[in-house]
Design a protein around this nucleic acid. Structure first.
Lengths: 344, 344
DNA sequence: CTGAAAGCGCTTACAG
DNA sequence: CTGAAAGCGCTTACAG
């Protein structure tokens, strides 16, 4: 394969100058630059990433860690971030935890990401105190999305989960519901992220603000996906005296709830109202009411917060402080799965 | 940061021996190996990937190219492949084309992947003759999933799209339908993959086998996703004399069709039957009849076909020939979206 | 604006 | 089984 010396020879300059010209450094005369570019083109030269990284200390790569790429939110976040990274010339190293705690530990292990990437994006990845220490010791720029625990020096992009949940439950209360169930992720799951707890908190705050006591028998935990929503709802129905409304912690759980209710012969929204959080791509198809959150915007913004400093660009004043959380807006979307409680 | 010489000094051996011991080469005595391992552990040593790659010529990385990570099939394939790669010690470099032809060209450009990865996995990525030449010139192992064009020396994992489509349309015919529409991806889209055409072909074969002529007015092309399914169905209804059944080229398009039909006041399956291909995670929730294809299995198997030779493992006899297509089974799943045609 | 030299931190023949 | 030496292909001060 052709290397930098070949290009240097053909262009009649030193390898150092080829290196500078190809990277667009300003300290190269226009004439020299064009000769180098022509030579590189003619020889089909491509820099060796390994050699460049070893000599330069930059990898041009960002690690992205997500719990499950197959879940709506994470897919959208990764797509938006990937687009931003590639435009900026960065490669994306994907780490999908696949719901396995052991993968989380492997990825976050001090030595794994070291020297392998220039920056880290952690999406909804729970962090213990030791993880935070290890990440800080890596001394790499990073950003978190939807993270409960923050890493010193890393910005965090998120929504206000407590407020989003409050809005969801308040919508059901406004429709006259009083027996409102909540189904959500299993907090004993080591990969459970903070949104679970925040959303439950928002739900309970809304109940209390309406003068209601949260009823433990109306609060069921399961896995944070479609199947989990189905199981949680089945459990709810098994307990007798079913709720007139269900607030699911995410749209995928809400969709599972729809299945369970249908299989139980209950109609939505006539018998039971259902609302989720997300505005999943299929929520419209299903007529699911929800609290919409901007997933792509979170991915794009986090990528920008991560890369702008690396590329020497100035950040917007409001988001320029690392450690600063950027909180994006959510909005209630009412479709056909929520309706007034029947007077009985 | 600690480097290999530090470990060598502490263990009282040469750097070469440290390198061998850490990589588990057999030519190291047990005593030496354990001393090296202990020293490395004590110093928290991690090999520098860039240096190792430059000296050794291996990157330990696989490039995965998908059209859109947010679509069900690609998310599942990537998750399954990622799991296999990481277990084998390989990193995954993700390239999401995001529906942009320009991204496809950038990724496939001869120099882009060169020296950056040890192997390539192309998922449903259309290849022109020049691309195939460029990929072959890279001289890297590769594998394709759901690809119409094959790369010499690369195995391909797929389903029989023609047969899958035939089964879908035959199911509708068996229910007594005669006016069966087909909605599918836009073949003019430069990122359209071969499955579009194969599925249309299977559909038309089934019609002809039943003595019917494919009716162009019942064949609408749009984007290969939910929104495309909606638009295609709206167009279909606009043409008047609506079909009694719709075969969508994928479940996401079928879901879009469900929305359009509902918005038009048509009931599924009483007025119109709908079937897709995939068995998307939400098809069960929607009661969508479909032809199920094993997405995770395709990702896992392709990853294995790619890595086994690299890891020096022997392959199963039946799949050991590169260039060989491995064709996985599909199966008809009847739910609530298909019903007998009304006698009128 | 450009070049000569050193160095990035490993692995690989080669020799023993 | 182990070591000394060379080399992987760049980039970075440094000097001019």
């Amino acid at each position: 394969m052709t290397k930098i010396d070949d290009v240097a020879r053909l262009a009649g300059v030193s390898p150092a100058t080829v290196s500078r010209a190809l990277r667009g450094l300003p300290t190269v005369s226009a004439a020299t630059r064009s000769r180098v570019l022509a030579a590189a083109e003619q020889l089909q030269y491509a820099v060796s990433p390994s050699a460049s990284r070893l000599a330069g200390g930059r990898t041009g790569t960002v690690a992205v860690v997500v719990p499950r790429i197959t879940r709506w939110f994470f897919g959208v976040v990764v797509e938006a971030a990937e687009d931003f990274f590639h435009r900026a010339g960065y490669d994306l190293l994907l780490h999908n935890l696949g719901g396995r705690e052991q993968n989380r530990q492997r990825v976050l292990h001090a030595t794994h990401l070291h020297k392998r990437v220039d920056a880290i994006m952690l999406v909804a990845t729970p962090l213990r105190a030791t993880d935070v220490t290890a990440l800080a010791a890596l001394d790499l720029p990073g950003v978190t999305i939807s993270s409960g625990t923050t890493v010193p020096g890393w910005p965090c992009v998120r929504i206000d989960d407590v407020a989003a949940a409050r809005t969801a439950t308040r919508h059901l209360l406004d429709l006259g519901h009083r027996r409102i169930a909540h189904i959500s992720g299993d907090p004993d799951d080591e990969l459970a992220f903070s949104a679970h707890l925040d959303r439950r908190r928002g739900h309970q705050e809304a109940l209390r603000a309406a003068g209601l006591q949260p009823d433990p028998s109306l609060d069921v935990e399961s896995s944070f996906d479609i199947a989990g929503g189905t199981r949680a709802t089945e459990e709810l129905l098994r307990r007798g005296d079913p709720p007139t409304a269900i607030f699911a912690a995410c749209d995928e759980m809400a969709m599972g709830a729809l299945t369970a209710l249908r299989d139980a012969g209950l109609r939505v929204p006539q018998d039971v109202s259902v609302i989720g959080i997300d505005d999943h791509a299929l929520s419209g198809v299903l007529g699911l009411s929800t609290i919409a959150q901007p997933a792509a915007e979170q991915g794009r913004l986090a990528a920008q917060l991560l890369l702008d400093p690396l590329c020497g660009r100035a950040l917007d004043a409001d988001v320029s402080k690392p450690d600063a959380s950027v909180i994006l807006d959510t909005r209630l979307v009412v479709r056909d799965s929520t309706a007034p409680a029947r007077a009985n």
